[in-house]
């Protein structure tokens, strides 16, 4: 118990040290405060921005895009991943192709999404979906492969129906890997949507951050970075917390 406490303490110390270094570098002018506003100024600006209706609206727009893309990419990718894992022929055909597709930086397709969908909600959701689906497919494949044959045999020997096997064996077996997949997919998804917003958009927090950058509003820019980082980390930690509770049956 003391071990984890000491480790947590060390972690907090590192965060405090980074913030302090940031503050000192800016305040003493070692780094031009116009380029790097101090930490305290940034957090004050962050509080200020969060009060603004325009920023709240941008956050809502981004959240809607992220959730829409995620809600489509995860089930769709999961089904494809499941088919790839369960069907030998499909796996032989599709697996190398998926690896090819996965290796391509998705950002180079962004101009095409703008041409096809125009600038707006669909373009961002589409690009978010595209950025996410490959990692979902590949993770689901891994998850299905983590189901043990022994467990399936046990279920069969006690007369489990296909539905019972799906919900009582497949799903719980796959859960630890699926949760990790969910977490990593969200990182890809968020990156995709925000990139699409920064590239061409009228709203969304990514668009705001890009605009602040272009206008050299460093305080707002940094506050925006901290905001998005905090949101991403919160989601990540939430899933990791659930993951930790089922890690003991991970194979």
């Amino acid at each position: 118990m003391q071990g984890t406490f000491a480790i947590n303490l060390a972690r907090i110390a590192i965060i405090v040290a980074i913030l302090a270094l940031w503050e000192v570098l800016s305040r003493t002018g070692i780094i031009n405060p116009r380029l790097l506003p101090s930490a305290s100024d940034t957090f004050v600006t962050l509080g200020d921005l969060l009060q603004r209706a325009a920023v709240q609206k941008d956050l809502m727009v981004t959240a809607a895009e992220v959730l829409a893309a995620f809600a489509m990419a995860v089930p769709f990718g999961a089904v494809i991943g499941f088919l790839v894992a369960e069907n030998r022929y499909f796996a032989d055909v599709a697996k190398p192709l998926l690896f090819f597709a996965f290796s391509i930086p998705k950002s180079i397709f962004l101009p095409m999404f703008i041409l096809v969908f125009g600038v707006g909600f669909a373009q961002k959701v589409g690009f978010g979906f595209f950025s996410t689906i490959f990692i979902v497919i590949m993770s689901t494949t891994t998850a299905v492969e983590s189901v043990k044959v022994e467990h399936l045999t046990v279920a069969r020997s006690y007369g489990a129906t296909p539905w019972q096997t799906a919900f009582r064996v497949y799903l719980p077996s796959m859960l630890p890997v699926l949760l990790e997949a969910l977490r990593i997919s969200m990182i890809f998804n968020l990156t995709g949507v925000i990139l699409a917003e920064m590239y061409a958009s009228r709203d969304g927090i990514g668009h705001q951050i890009a605009t602040w950058g272009e206008n050299f509003q460093m305080k707002q820019l940094l506050a925006g970075v901290v905001m998005v980082a905090a949101i991403a980390m919160t989601f990540n930690e939430l899933v990791r917390w659930v993951e930790a509770r089922c890690s003991h049956w991970r194979t």
Binding site: E150, H151, T153, V154, V169, P172, L175, C246, W249
Partner: peptide
């Protein structure tokens, strides 16, 4: 049926 080890569901 009783199988070899590791046939219990860990969850």
């Amino acid at each position: 049926v009783v199988f070899q080890e590791a046939s219990l569901f860990p969850w």
